[in-house]
Computed example of a mutant assay.
Amino acid sequence: MEMNTWEILSGEQIHTRILNKEWRNLPYNIIFELYLDPIGLGHDDYITLFLNWQIEHIAYNSLSYYLVLDKNLLRPETDIDILIDSEQPAAIKIHDLDQSYIFYLIKMLLKSSELSVSKLSRQFVRNVAEQLLLSVMINRITKEPETKLNPVNRYSLLAFDFVDRVKACFQKHKSVHYYAKKLGVTEKTLSKATQATLKITPKELIQKTLTEKAMTLLEHTDKSVKEISYELGIKETNNFSTFFKKMTNITPLEYRNLKRQLPTLLKKGSQDSQ
């Protein structure tokens, strides 16, 4: 059987693959993280492009989808500087996205994944990947006309090391000071690194990680809000509920009900449009 040159995977599938160590013989060297704001407000949507990055080193998000592909899938005439100039690892993140467009792409990629070895499917994914690469280039050139896309630098390495530590320790440690001390840098340096690389402050990243874990537990378990609060290291349930509403504009129970009603609503919307 011919080896696939691309796949579309959820964060949980990435997690499973990493645990099972199934990546070694796969040719993927371009990875797009497609993240949609789960509340549907759209202000947190982003795409992250990872080039020449080992998948097990990515701080994967269980709420994201990942398009992983072989660089050779692209057309030879694809003239994109970042693909040509460097074989070093690089990670580039862009915001200000059209949520409906990304949602459409995810749906189409999921459909195409059923035919991932077909010629037509390859052509579709090639076009999507090239559009996404061009979008990344245009976004960066528009916002930073004087800045070239450089490989991962000290700030990038520091920022992604911070992300890994937060994901491992956020239940116990929620202060920026703790992580800065463990990384051997000042809070100011850590803040510069995360804002330069991830466009987010260290405190915001800790809060975002906490919120996303809470969302996952609310959606995929039947644990009570009190149990989830305790698991996340927040002793007072009221404090957790207040924090969650501040981050999402709805309460934990409202979020759980919304996510469990969503498949029915999407199905109904699809039927109504036919």
Rank of each mutant, 00 (worst) to 15 (best):
266 L>D: 06
136 V>C: 04
265 L>W: 09
20 N>D: 15
172 K>I: 05
61 N>V: 07
76 P>W: 14
246 K>F: 03
56 E>V: 12
20 N>Q: 14
166 V>S: 00
54 Q>D: 14
139 N>K: 11
168 A>T: 09
187 E>S: 15
101 Y>G: 12
190 L>V: 10
153 N>R: 12
86 S>E: 11
40 G>E: 05
175 S>L: 03
182 K>S: 10
172 K>R: 07
164 D>F: 10
250 I>G: 01
90 A>V: 12
159 A>R: 00
118 S>N: 07
22 E>N: 14
142 T>V: 10
43 H>P: 07
257 N>G: 05
32 F>A: 02
40 G>Y: 03
77 E>Q: 14
224 S>H: 11
186 T>A: 13
52 N>E: 13
214 A>R: 01
104 Y>Q: 11
26 L>F: 11
274 Q>A: 13
29 N>W: 05
218 L>E: 02
247 M>I: 01
216 T>H: 11
257 N>E: 13
231 E>W: 05
186 T>G: 15
246 K>S: 03
175 S>K: 06
37 D>H: 01
13 Q>W: 07
2 E>A: 06
44 D>H: 09
24 R>L: 14
227 E>D: 13
59 A>C: 08
18 I>M: 08
249 N>L: 00
151 P>L: 04
251 T>C: 04
121 S>F: 12
216 T>I: 12
188 K>D: 13
219 E>M: 05
235 K>D: 09
81 D>I: 09
116 S>M: 13
240 F>N: 00
237 T>G: 09
46 Y>C: 05
40 G>D: 04
268 K>G: 14
185 V>D: 01
134 L>M: 11
70 D>R: 06
103 F>C: 06
83 L>S: 08
244 F>C: 01
103 F>V: 04
273 S>A: 15
43 H>I: 06
14 I>A: 05
23 W>K: 11
208 K>M: 07
84 I>L: 08
208 K>S: 03
210 L>Y: 01
215 M>Q: 02
256 R>D: 03
88 Q>H: 13
174 K>D: 04
6 W>S: 01
252 P>I: 02
120 L>I: 15
265 L>G: 12
162 F>H: 00
207 Q>K: 07
251 T>V: 04
105 L>K: 10
15 H>K: 13
162 F>S: 00
220 H>G: 03
222 D>A: 15
14 I>G: 05
241 S>V: 08
102 I>V: 06
154 R>N: 10
101 Y>D: 12
155 Y>M: 13
64 S>M: 04
183 L>F: 04
36 L>H: 03
129 A>E: 06
151 P>S: 08
229 S>I: 02
123 Q>P: 09
273 S>M: 15
27 P>Y: 08
162 F>E: 01
78 T>I: 13
211 T>D: 00
43 H>R: 06
251 T>A: 02
63 L>W: 03
241 S>K: 07
61 N>W: 02
56 E>W: 14
53 W>I: 06
225 V>R: 06
151 P>D: 04
34 L>D: 01
234 I>N: 00
149 L>M: 10
123 Q>T: 15
75 R>P: 15
183 L>W: 04
140 R>H: 11
274 Q>K: 14
75 R>T: 15
75 R>E: 15
9 L>G: 00
113 S>I: 02
96 D>C: 09
232 L>K: 00
47 I>C: 02
22 E>S: 15
28 Y>D: 03
122 R>A: 12
63 L>R: 03
101 Y>H: 13
220 H>P: 05
